[in-house]
């Protein structure tokens, strides 16, 4: 129980620091009034804007009011639309999630078997090809990858409309853009985790005991690579949103990722903060799930926890 409380406390503090940091950095580097009003606006309109959104108060006071609102479930209003920030984010969320879910499945579905395959044929042409391709997929920025796909499939072949959600095919390019570099990470990670397990002495014990290779893979190798894979999956969850930001911008998808870019540029604080809170919470939950998964997989972790809980 203590463990859960401690974690929750730490998570809340992390979130507070996250929004605090972004709030102050964004505040001192840009003025929402000047971002939302044109250069030709009368000075009195700027004053009116500041008054309307409480930007005439000292910074710390603005932040305090914002945080107080949070505790009442009020995520603030978007300066751009005058609508609640949360409502605006939730409008984009289904789009973003609809990109993220297939991406993570595609990344794991592609990367894991590829990495395992490469590890089992270490040094072969297939292995080297996998490594080379994964370096390539990692080296090409998402942004460029997206444009390359678009050039080939939309401009050159004319198969898929380049932007927005037209039909199911619209998912192919953005998901590929997001998933390919991630699949590369999964492949590399799976490969090295596999190699480590494959050279572990326990496999000698198993082989010397006459167990068949398939049996060994199922009984020893797969459970043991699950631990590092859970770690990398939790980590990649964070990259998932970053990837969505790029994909949504390139492919013109009306999701939360693109909203973040617009909101940062225009210093639409409430929206930025709410997105950070949401992604931060997602990350924290992903890590929590990973921790629970560790416990489920690894008895050493379970024991360690049990001892801590007893204390």
């Amino acid at each position: 129980m203590n463990w859960i409380l401690l974690r929750t406390g730490r998570a809340l503090l992390t979130l507070l620091l996250l929004i605090g940091f972004s709030f102050f950095v964004l505040s001192i580097s840009g003025d929402p009034a000047l971002s939302h009003l044109s250069a030709d606006v009368d000075a009195s309109a700027i004053d009116a804007f500041r008054r309307k959104w409480g930007l005439d108060l000292p910074l710390w006071q603005q932040f305090f009011i914002y945080v107080r609102g949070l505790f009442h479930g009020d995520f603030g209003m978007s300066y751009a639309t005058g609508r609640p920030a949360l409502e605006q984010i939730m409008a984009g969320m289904p789009v973003t999630v609809s990109l993220m879910l297939p991406t993570i499945f595609a990344a794991i579905g592609l990367g894991l078997p590829l990495g395992a395959f490469a590890a089992m044929r270490r040094g072969s042409t297939a292995d080297r090809l996998t490594i080379t391709l994964s370096v390539l997929a990692l080296a090409v920025p998402n942004f460029l990858l997206g444009l390359m796909l678009m050039y080939v499939f939309s401009v050159h072949l004319g198969w898929i409309e380049p932007s927005g959600i037209v039909d199911w095919r619209s998912y192919l390019m953005p998901v590929a853009t997001m998933a390919l570099p991630m699949a590369a990470i999964f492949a590399r990670f799976t490969r090295s985790a596999m190699l480590e397990i494959l050279s572990h002495p326990m496999l000698d014990t198993a082989r010397a005991g006459g167990l068949q290779p398939g049996r060994i893979k199922r009984a020893h190798v797969l459970p043991n690579i699950a631990v590092p894979l859970v770690t990398i999956t939790a980590l990649e969850f964070g990259h998932l949103f970053t990837a969505a930001v790029v994909a949504e911008s390139v492919f013109g998808w009306p999701g939360t990722g693109r909203l973040l870019i617009d909101s940062v540029a225009s210093r639409d604080f409430a929206v930025v903060q709410a997105i950070l809170l949401l992604t931060g919470t997602t990350m924290i939950l992903a890590n929590l799930l990973a921790d629970i998964a560790y416990g489920a997989i690894d008895p050493r972790v379970r024991d360690q926890r049990r001892r801590r809980v007893k204390a």
């Binding site: 002495p201 326990m202 014990t205 010397a208 006459g210 009984a219 459970p223 043991n224 008895p299």
Partner: peptide
Amino acid sequence: LRGVEIAMIFQDPMSALDPLMTVEGHLKLR
């Protein structure tokens, strides 16, 4: 011949076993 006719044990006993598997699991596997 492995396991059935000729078996082998190794130097490091801690890493000879699968850390994720119970003793019973190891034996049942065999």
